[in-house]
Simulated scan of single mutants.
Amino acid sequence: MTEQEDRVAREREEIAARVASFKATQQKFAREREEYYATTLGNAWSGFTRPSVWE
């Protein structure tokens, strides 16, 4: 390989690593949002009592 090809290959590897890191971070944020939503909604519903129509 020439020096230019080596440089291009290193740049591609760096870009791939950055993309993988970004994707992992976005997945972490998505999991945290889903967990927060489930917890918040669960807490909201736990305090809710549905009035009975038949009583």
Rank of each mutant, 00 (worst) to 15 (best):
S21E: 15
L41G: 02
E11M: 12
A44V: 12
A24F: 02
E32M: 12
S21H: 07
A17K: 07
A30P: 00
E35P: 00
R33F: 14
E34N: 13
R10E: 03
P51F: 04
E11Y: 02
G47A: 10
F48W: 15
N43H: 11
R18F: 00
R50H: 10
A38G: 00
A16G: 03
R33A: 11
Y37L: 13
T40K: 09
W54H: 14
A17Y: 01
F22V: 05
V19K: 12
E34Y: 05
Q27N: 05
S52C: 05
A44C: 07
R31I: 09
V53A: 15
R7G: 00
S52G: 14
L41I: 11
F48A: 04
A38I: 03
Y37C: 07
Q4G: 05
A9Q: 10
F48G: 00
A20W: 02
T40A: 10
R31N: 13
R31P: 04
Y37V: 08
E11Q: 07
R18T: 06
A38E: 15
Q26H: 04
R31M: 11
S46M: 10
G47P: 02
I15L: 12
K23S: 09
E13F: 03
E14A: 09
V19L: 12
W45H: 07
A9R: 13
A17Q: 09
E3K: 06
E11G: 01
E14K: 08
R31T: 11
N43V: 00
E32I: 07
T39V: 07
R10K: 13
T40N: 08
W54D: 12
R31C: 04
D6R: 12
P51E: 10
M1Q: 08
E5I: 02
S46F: 04
D6I: 08
G42N: 08
Q26R: 15
T49W: 06
Q4S: 08
R33G: 07
L41N: 05
E3N: 09
R18D: 12
T40G: 02
K23F: 02
S46A: 15
W54Q: 10
R18E: 14
W54T: 13
A24W: 01
Y37M: 13
A24M: 05
R18L: 14
E5F: 01
R50E: 15
A30T: 12
R12G: 01
R31H: 14
K23G: 01
D6K: 10
I15V: 14
E11T: 05
E34P: 03
T49V: 07
S21D: 15
A38Q: 12
N43K: 11
T25Y: 08
W54C: 05
G47S: 11
E5W: 04
